[in-house]
């Protein structure tokens, strides 16, 4: 077991399933015997706003919030949200980013512009970048809403937690009728990360 504190930041848009991803990670770390603290955003910001969730584990975790440059992995379910929270990622850390674009109302109503070069920006900002078409992968499994588990599978490869801890955590967090699809989505993400594709 490592003595350092390992931190993961999940970013995205309210309603994309960030809370589930962070809860599964926290439970997996707990199942592996670590002390765990997480933080989530509730309330107003959940209504389609930009949101993050933070998970930290280690032998003893003092607080729930990740310092800037403190995250081993930054996972984003929306591509430009990864840029918004880039400063959390530690030097050498991995960014796992869904290619999905969710266009904010500020863009549709003409007040702002969604960057056309998002992918190029991501490649410049994150030396270690794993771009995943998580929605397409999840849709292939017949469960488009499981995109969060595809991303989480890719995150898992970067964390020192055993496979059985992840399975146990997913089982604890997901409704039985969605369990199989979510486990498959997780496996797909894990395989994508292992293959280095993106």
């Amino acid at each position: 077991m490592t003595t350092e504190i390992i931190s993961v930041v999940f970013a995205g848009v309210g309603g994309q399933g960030i809370l589930l991803a962070s809860e599964v990670t926290a439970r997996a770390a707990m199942a592996a015997g670590y002390d765990v603290k997480t933080n989530e955003v509730h309330g107003m910001a959940q209504r389609g706003g930009s949101v993050i969730a933070q998970v930290r584990f280690g032998t003893a975790v003092p607080g729930p919030l990740v310092p800037p440059g403190g995250a081993r992995v930054l996972a984003s379910l929306e591509r430009i949200e990864a840029l918004r929270y880039a400063e959390y990622l530690a030097p050498g850390g991995l960014a796992v980013v869904s290619t999905q674009a969710v266009i904010p109302v500020t863009v549709s109503s003409g007040q702002a512009v969604y960057p056309a070069d998002a992918e190029a920006r991501l490649r410049r900002v994150f030396p270690r970048l794993l771009l995943v078409d998580a929605v397409a992968e999840a849709t292939k499994l017949g469960q488009a809403r499981a995109a969060n588990l595809v991303i989480l599978g890719a995150v898992a490869g970067e964390l020192p937690l055993p496979a059985e801890a992840w399975t146990e955590a997913i089982r604890a967090c997901v409704k039985p009728q969605h369990l199989e699809a979510n486990l498959k989505a997780f496996a797909v993400g894990r395989a994508l990360a292992a293959g280095g594709r993106g």
């Binding site: 389609g48 930009s50 918004r84 904010p104």
Partner: peptide
């Protein structure tokens, strides 16, 4: 202070909205 990357300087705001 940690400086956000230039690539994040002009991102569109994403305030919460009516669903």
């Amino acid at each position: 202070a940690p400086v956000p990357p230039a690539e994040a300087a002009d991102l569109p705001a994403r305030p919460p909205v009516l669903c």
